[in-house]
């Protein structure tokens, strides 16, 4: 995809180039096979301005260098997918964006993550407050063992939002769950199906009015139908929120994302395995004309 128009591009010292292009990745039907859609012929409109700018992000767990040298930007109001083989550190990188790694004993994060213009990794930033603004949805649905309503109200109370019935309804409507649960808001969250639980977790995240929603393999524990429902929801949410989604499912990344970051694993001399960022680009570019041979190997199914 050498014709890519990239007006804002600067010559960074990182080998990784950042492409901000193409809106909602062509309706979700793009197959992962390379070459299905040869490179863009027209100048693609750029995505919104970056909300996150990661610079040389690295994570250590004790002596284990889990992730190193991630430099990329995350456009606002778009879906960025982090893909790569398991163990490549994509979830670890994601968890830097709302400082969840602070909670892991022995975890150390280096580099910079600019949110707007401020480094959110800075020690004088309040991580608790930050997490209220940057929501997160996890791999396995993790509703609290409370009622559906209590699950939603929990986050609101924590963030000082008055938990009104309207807000509860709105969050459930936005998460496309309202019609299914409106008659049983007092029911236990565990009584819902897996897909419903995950949408409840999304509603719970929306209810606190975040600016960004991080999703860590949100569909990996769900069946295909529930997965499609969540994907539709993600595309709708991207109109209002910035989404960063970790997935190991390339078809999913192709269906939903505007921008794709491919991470991979490098063995180090000490036998450690460290996650690195191989390539970032628009979904179309990554899946049709990957520049990095590792990306190509992965998406054509030769690796991973």
């Amino acid at each position: 995809m050498t014709t890519n128009v990239d007006p804002e591009k600067t010559a960074k010292d990182s080998p990784i180039e950042i492409h901000l292009a193409t809106g909602a990745a062509d309706g979700g039907a793009s197959p992962p096979a390379a070459g299905a859609q040869p490179g863009a012929t027209s100048a693609e409109p750029s995505l919104g301005p970056p909300i996150f700018r990661l610079h040389d992000l690295g994570v250590w767990y004790g002596n284990h260098h889990a992730v190193k040298g991630v430099t990329m930007e995350v456009p606002k109001n778009a879906i960025t997918a982090l893909i790569g083989p398991s163990g490549c550190g994509k979830s670890t990188a994601l968890r830097c964006l709302n400082r969840m790694n602070d909670l892991i004993p022995g975890a150390r994060v280096e580099g910079r993550v600019l949110f707007g213009d401020e480094d959110l990794l800075s020690s004088d930033v309040d991580p608790v407050d930050l997490r209220g603004r940057i929501g997160m949805v996890f791999q396995k649905p993790n509703p609290f063992p409370k009622s559906i309503k209590d699950n939603l109200e929990f986050g609101m109370k924590v963030n000082g939002i008055k938990p009104t019935a309207e807000r509860v309804e709105q969050a459930l409507v936005d998460a496309a769950l309202w019609d299914e649960v409106k008659d049983r808001l007092k029911a236990e969250a565990f009584s819902l199906s897996g897909g419903q639980q995950q949408r409840l977790c999304i509603a719970r995240a929306i209810a606190v009015e975040p600016e960004v929603i991080l999703m860590d393999e949100p569909c990996s524990a769900l069946d295909p139908i529930a997965t499609l429902a969540i994907e539709d929801l993600m595309k709708k949410l991207a109109e209002r929120y910035t989404l960063v989604v970790v997935t190991h499912n390339m078809q999913q990344a192709a269906r939903i994302s505007d921008q794709v970051a491919f991470m991979t694993v490098e063995g180090t001399a000490e036998g450690n395995r460290t996650g690195v960022l191989a390539e970032v680009g628009t979904a179309r570019q990554i899946f049709s004309a990957p520049k990095d041979p590792r990306t190509e190997a992965y998406i054509t199914g030769r690796v991973g």
Partner: peptide
């Protein structure tokens, strides 16, 4: 209590006490 439940709450901006 699974850790995922704690993470869910921390991810919403809850403090350790909460």
């Amino acid at each position: 209590v699974p850790n995922s439940m704690r993470e869910g709450a921390f991810g919403l901006g809850a403090t350790r006490r909460v």
